[in-house]
Design a protein around this nucleic acid. Structure first.
Lengths: 208, 208
DNA sequence: TTGAATACTGTACAGATTTACAGTATAGTT
DNA sequence: AACTATACTGTAAATCTGTACAGTATTCAA
């Protein structure tokens, strides 16, 4: 646990946090002195020395506006908390499943997938044997080509569908993953066709 | 539209953005000069004057580290962008799938699910008919009870498993979703049993 | 009652920093 | 050919800034 600040020190520390948050710059000691009506900069220096000793800030020696607020006081403003939801590992026998020791990592779509990804809601049953159900979101990495046999979002005449791709000569075969469906053949000289991207993830929200 | 920066001006502007983003402070003109090998600070001043004239920054007169980057250039650093990856809707005929107009919303686990959720990696094939595959992450909302027939994470004698739950009297039936597997019966008077939470989502990362 | 922490004033100075002014040179526009 | 913008060097003054040192006063714990 960190040593508590006195009320005056807290005021000054809060002012520094406010400056960074609202004005986007660290104040100088003279600016702090002016704010609090101190007639001497050394008043600020004394307070900062105490605040620093207690671990709330550090200072870049010699640098102007060199007060550096410790990481743990940036809530959401700058050093973002760990993103996403915790991935729990195997629980040791008897240990509560929520034990922090068991956190293997964190799951977050924007961390897992980068800038070039988008999500698309799947309609229909044509890919259920590939584990992609009606209503699922597929995560798609934008790329113009995929290897034969890979699952991709294909756009045929402006219509987007998720299918397994098999390109051969002047034709593309869009293969569903459901025994009740037949592959679709697209003639590249007739239809406008392109690959929007490769399906790299599936997400399903379970209701009920 | 804003006047474009020259490549040199852009470099300097980018460096300032980097400083703010990574080091958390605005550089002084001397720090910029040192970074770019300028022998005169006035080189920096000239560039800044140009960058300011074009509207990318303003300057607090007389203040050290007084460069103020214009609001519209804080991407993610301060004024947080929308979280998550874009969910694209139906594309209008012929419209490019990446058109911003078609963004229906954004998908992000920490937004979709709240604090009381965690993820768990599934091992085994026992739930494949429920669309939960080996290696998938299930998203679990922590709660001590579920309705019969719902899928949950059950902890039996410290061992966590994902199954459909059927509680009846002094027994719990853990029902797999795979015809090759048989339901497991847990005697509550013999085994330590509790529900870790309800499975409310599934996420699969597709490799290959 | 001695000491340490807090909470200030006041002064001073070295070095950091902005800003200004005087140049040089090149490239593109009018 | 004159003008403007870009892209620098060099110098120097004005002011900003952190840091140090010398005090004063109060409070609280040992």
């Amino acid at each position: 646990m960190m040593k508590p600040l006195t009320s005056k020190q807290q005021e000054i520390f809060d002012f520094i946090l406010d400056c960074i948050k609202n004005e986007n710059y660290t104040p100088t000691m003279r600016e702090i002195a002016e704010q609090f009506g101190f007639k001497s900069v050394n008043s600020v220096n004394d307070h900062l020395t105490a605040i620093e000793r207690k671990g709330y800030v550090s200072r870049r020696h010699g640098a102007s506006r060199g007060i550096v607020v410790s990481d743990e006081f940036f809530d959401g403003t700058d050093s973002e908390d760990e993103p996403g939801i915790p991935i729990l590992g195997k629980t040791a026998a008897g240990a509560p499943i929520t034990a922090i020791e068991n956190v293997e990592g964190r799951l977050e779509l924007s961390e897992l997938y980068g800038e070039e990804h988008f999500a698309l809601r799947v309609e229909g049953q044509s890919m259920i044997d590939a584990g992609i159900w009606d209503g699922d979101y597929v995560i798609v990495r934008q790329q113009p080509r995929v290897e034969n046999g890979q699952i991709a979002v294909a756009v045929v005449d402006g219509e987007a569908t998720v299918k397994r791709i098999n390109l051969k000569g002047g034709e593309v075969e869009l293969i569903p993953e459901n025994e009740n469906y037949r592959p679709i053949l697209v003639d590249l000289s007739v239809s406008e066709f392109y690959i929007a991207g490769k399906v790299v993830g599936v997400h399903r929200v379970i209701r009920s």
